[in-house]
Amino acid sequence: MATTMPGALPRAVSDTRGSMLRVLLAYRRSPGLMVASFAVPVVMVVVFGYVFGSAMQVPGGGNYREFLMPGLFVLVAVNGLIPTMVGTARDAGRGITDRLRSMPVSRTGLLLGLAVADLLVAVCVLVPLTAVGLAAGWRIRDGFAHAAVAFALLLLFRFTMTWVGMCLGLLAGSEETAGQLAVLTFPLGMVTNAFVPTGGMPGWLRAVADCNPISAVVAACREQFGNPSAPGGPWPMQHPVAATLLWAVALLVVFVPLAVRKFSSHGR
């Protein structure tokens, strides 16, 4: 059959689009998937915002849900790595990865497609979650330019997490192992400033929480949305936007090449 072989860049772009199409088709064919994607965060707003929030003191006073929402936005971004990880592991375990690798495709292009598609899914989840947050009393207090920065940082972090998810999925190699790994993201999200100020934690745990990249993103979002946040803390907490950008670059520099390498040499 007549298959022309264009240059490396058009090939990569074409494979990125194909790979995106695959993810988006899965959402289109099973609309329930998308509902599940934003049902969980909405439940979290209720559980954390109203159940835990009823007994929470916010630094500097104010509405706990206004303190909580930036944390939930970030946790949703972090949890985005789970479907990516499980999906990548499923592909590897069921031979789809091998089939793709036996085709004349751009490896980087394929993986980039997964990441970009996940970004679109993230936007689809952020919109209703923002609406729920507004309904629960959360507000953007520092103008739309700053809010836009916060949303951009959220999406950047989600993009970073997708690459981490692909690496972990390829390492796991099977859907079952990946499912078990997913449980580990829970403590990673909890030992942060997302739900409570770190000031009340024991010293060693506070140090861990303050250095957690998730805390940096949460602090950056609180700063940009103008929501209440705890003062002080180490450098990343004082300069959360810069810390978020540094973390994102560092994680991408490590995990993008690692994912591509893992994908290309799967099963060797």
């Binding site: 059959m1 298959t3 194909g18 199409l21 899965a26 789809i96 793709l100």
Partner: peptide, 19 residues
């Protein structure tokens, strides 16, 4: 891919083969 239709699968693999 189990999450999409049979036709989707074939079209996608066709795309990856640059048809």
């Amino acid at each position: 891919d189990e999450g999409i239709t049979g036709r989707d699968n074939l079209r996608l693999f066709g795309r990856f083969h640059r048809l």
